[in-house]
């Protein structure tokens, strides 16, 4: 049974693309077939983060408009063979996406893959709403700061009203992924507490990704952190989040940069 998941946030720069790549790679490493789709038409980045920018020939827009067949646009990852990328077009804009076209592409991908991760653009406009439109579940990426949390809250409202599932009266599963969490700054009270973020957004927590140089390095290397530095704290946090997505019950913790030491924060999940 294929799961279509939108990775979204409202606010830009919180780590949607990085998280899409890292989670996609982590899921694919367990042998499941995964495709990551870049919906940020006009400002594509996922190809860079995945290290596939030199292999892009066709893109999502070509497939949506029916110019090429889906397999022609899919790019297989060189490191993990069950991981695929459907890149966005850099020369077009979001108006080139049509609801019907996107629906057709998602339906076709459902026949081939176990996981479809849609990397949403920032904002609440056409690109973002089309990325979430056909999703079964959503990963809401949030930084522990007020503006990011409020934008995420707005996105959750849209997920509950503008998606296909919501319009049919069903509920879309929502998972909260807190990224760029800095334990030291949180201790000094310079960041929102995890509890506060959970209380405001009131959706279940999928994972807490620590602020880490490894993530930055991975993006610049063009390799998801779950591939390039498997043992890093951030990679372990993404791996745990991927397992939770698969339905495993894994204790929530913040992996710290001190090797092998798990700084247990709390073991509860949000309501």
């Amino acid at each position: 049974m294929t799961k279509v998941i939108v990775v979204t946030s409202g606010k830009g720069g919180v780590g949607k693309t990085t998280s899409t790549a890292a989670l996609g790679a982590a899921l694919a490493q367990s042998g499941q077939s995964v495709v990551v789709i870049d919906f940020d038409v006009g400002l594509r980045n996922l190809d860079l983060v995945m290290g596939a920018e030199r292999r892009v020939v066709y893109d999502l827009i070509n497939v949506v408009q029916g110019t090429v067949k889906l397999p022609q646009a899919l790019i297989r990852d060189k490191r993990v063979e069950t991981l695929f990328l459907l890149p966005a077009s850099q020369t077009r804009d979001k108006d080139a996406l049509t609801d019907d076209g996107v629906a057709r592409v998602i339906a076709e991908l459902r026949e081939k893959f176990a996981w479809i991760l849609c990397d949403s653009p920032a904002g609440i406009e056409r690109g973002a709403t089309l990325a979430m439109r056909h999703a079964d579940a959503a990963i809401v990426v949030t930084n522990p700061e007020v503006s990011s949390v409020r934008d995420s809250d707005r996105i959750i409202g849209l997920l509950d009203s503008k998606t296909e599932k919501a319009e049919k009266g069903e509920r879309i599963d929502k998972h909260l992924l807190i990224t760029r969490y800095d334990a030291a700054r949180a201790e000094r009270g310079e960041m929102l507490k995890i509890e506060d973020v959970l209380e405001i957004l009131s959706i279940p927590l999928l994972g807490i990704i620590p602020e880490s140089q490894d993530v930055l390095r991975a993006s610049n290397l063009g390799s998801p952190v779950t591939i390039s530095s498997v043992e890093s704290a951030a990679a372990r946090a993404y791996q745990a989040a991927a397992l939770r997505l698969c339905g495993q019950d894994i204790e929530m913790s913040i992996p710290t940069d001190k090797k092998g030491l798990f700084n247990r924060l709390f073991g509860r999940r949000a309501a």
């Binding site: 609440i124 409020r150 934008d151 809250d153 707005r154 959750i156 409202g157 849209l158 509950d160 009131s202």
Partner: peptide, 8 residues
């Protein structure tokens, strides 16, 4: 019965 979200 559900929270009122930002923007609603």
């Amino acid at each position: 019965s559900s929270p009122v979200r930002s923007g609603q």
